[in-house]
Design a protein around this nucleic acid. Sequence first.
DNA 1: TATGAATGAGCGTTCATTCAT
DNA 2: TATGAATGAACGCTCATTCAT
Lengths: 183, 183, 183, 183
Amino acid sequence: MDEFIARGFAATRLDDVARRAGVAKGTIYLHFKDKESMFEELIRTAIVPMINRLWGTPPRPGASVRDMVEGFAKTFIEEVATTRRGDLVRLIVAEGPRFPAVADFYYREVVSRGLAGMRALIELGIARGEIQHKNLARFPQIMVAPALIAVIWQSLFSRHAPLDALEMFRVHLDLIFSERRTT
Amino acid sequence: MDEFIARGFAATRLDDVARRAGVAKGTIYLHFKDKESMFEELIRTAIVPMINRLWGTPPRPGASVRDMVEGFAKTFIEEVATTRRGDLVRLIVAEGPRFPAVADFYYREVVSRGLAGMRALIELGIARGEIQHKNLARFPQIMVAPALIAVIWQSLFSRHAPLDALEMFRVHLDLIFSERRTT
Amino acid sequence: MDEFIARGFAATRLDDVARRAGVAKGTIYLHFKDKESMFEELIRTAIVPMINRLWGTPPRPGASVRDMVEGFAKTFIEEVATTRRGDLVRLIVAEGPRFPAVADFYYREVVSRGLAGMRALIELGIARGEIQHKNLARFPQIMVAPALIAVIWQSLFSRHAPLDALEMFRVHLDLIFSERRTT
Amino acid sequence: MDEFIARGFAATRLDDVARRAGVAKGTIYLHFKDKESMFEELIRTAIVPMINRLWGTPPRPGASVRDMVEGFAKTFIEEVATTRRGDLVRLIVAEGPRFPAVADFYYREVVSRGLAGMRALIELGIARGEIQHKNLARFPQIMVAPALIAVIWQSLFSRHAPLDALEMFRVHLDLIFSERRTT
DNA sequence: TATGAATGAGCGTTCATTCAT
DNA sequence: TATGAATGAACGCTCATTCAT
């Protein structure tokens, strides 16, 4: 997986994959039909722990919706955006159009579930009066957009200008939640 | 460019590029040193018209800041996110880490300028009282985050679930701007 | 080696080398880094048996110096000048300037050793009174010059006029050694 | 010609030839059918001035045969062996087997004439009593052998060990001519 | 006559895939 | 099950040759 992340699908050599995995090149073909299906299966299995990391930290009982979202963002930024798992997301963005199976899987397991969960939170926030903008529930993507920005920024531009992703996320949450935090 | 967008750098064959360009393979080398520099130069030249499209529509005089941002978003979604230029952005995200020259150019010409322009708009909005959240000026990325979401969604997930990018952007703007709409 | 001898380095096709070797083209690269290093290594390994042929026949004990030199010449003409090994020498002359590593190796392993041996023989001949020309020891190249002529003649001109290389060498020895022949 | 000498036939690019000649690449084809015939014609025309240099210095009247040969050797070493014309000889040795027309021309114009001239000189030397070895006339190659050694040594080994070609030639002449010169 | 942009066959090299061990 | 030497199709790149100007 690290090889695919570092070089992309086409530029990754099975020689390197085998060496990194500590097996002979032929051994790969005992486990995978070919390079493509290996890529797809590896991505699938790599996504699972990412999901677990994200949903792994249950919200404290009695927490506000904002606290829950902020906790989620913190987890995402610490466990994904600033680690190799962030590049996994970028890899999926990069190779998705050529590997529909990958995009499908990612949509099904991560995107649609994540958005559903986020929508539930938003509706809870609306019900509790924490969120005024009722339309937000129609586009839960808005809630996670800064997280995606953080992932891409980290890979491409952190060299030019570092980005305090968590602080950005907090400012974004200020837009959404009414309990004033006027830093 | 279309070949690179469709397949990525490594998987693109110069045979196909030449055929698509209607020239012989050798002709490519009259214009470019090698595949890498062709890729970098093509990206650079492809970015320029994208920039022109984005900055091309000047705001109506007397427009509100929200109108200006919304106009920009409309342009972006119509001229970039839903066209092949959107895939160009995705290509840069995909290959940027392996082509620092590309990422650098994109940061310099698009990202840093775009963010600077957006920050100026935000500050204008704050000055005019349209925007309450003063911290937003620290993270102009937040303003464009839904645009990036739109680009990626279009390439990867529009098959699964269409996304009304402009409406999403409007909801996002509702978070940022106070009620009055002068559209 | 035969391909390189027949066509020279630049004009030799690895396709032909592989076919002649009875392997696939890719197999070559399991043994050699690239065409250049294959050429250099092949030349090096081809020189070794040539050296062995030359030094392989030890002089009869009690032989005169002239007999020893003549025996050496006979071996050279039979084993080198009139065989493919002679073309190897021509190949080295041809490609040496562009492959300094080849010229160096040939100088070290063949030329300098051969000349040292020849000088020792000349000094022995002078000490024994077989050779009158003391200056000959300063230029042992003279002793072997007709051998080189024979190699080149064989490759280039034998079609036009055959050359009895051994007889030429004997006449040359007549110039060097005093009358007595103990053959 | 300099390009061919520096790189050999196969590795020489017509681009470089044209640039060196100060003409466009296409212009070459107004003068030569293709690369091969250009090579052959160039070699032929390059040989002519070499011949002229060699036969250009007529012997002083009343000179001894040895003086004449030595003068010839001096001319050869100064005008050929230590100049680019020496590499021309090496080029012919290198490419001759693949360009029979070149080898033929060289044999006809240089080798056979040179040997005939040398044979005449040898016979004159024998008639005058300067040369004792009557058999030498059968192998005039012996007389010029050190000159060839000098050419090859210059290209391949002068870096490792310089060779005083003229002095070597004089020692060689000492073997042939009876007027004692016991340096 | 001269040009040089364009051509495309051909080469060196790589690497996913196979298979005898 | 595991190996890794061997394969050969395919790619990037070169360069002799052509031809419209």
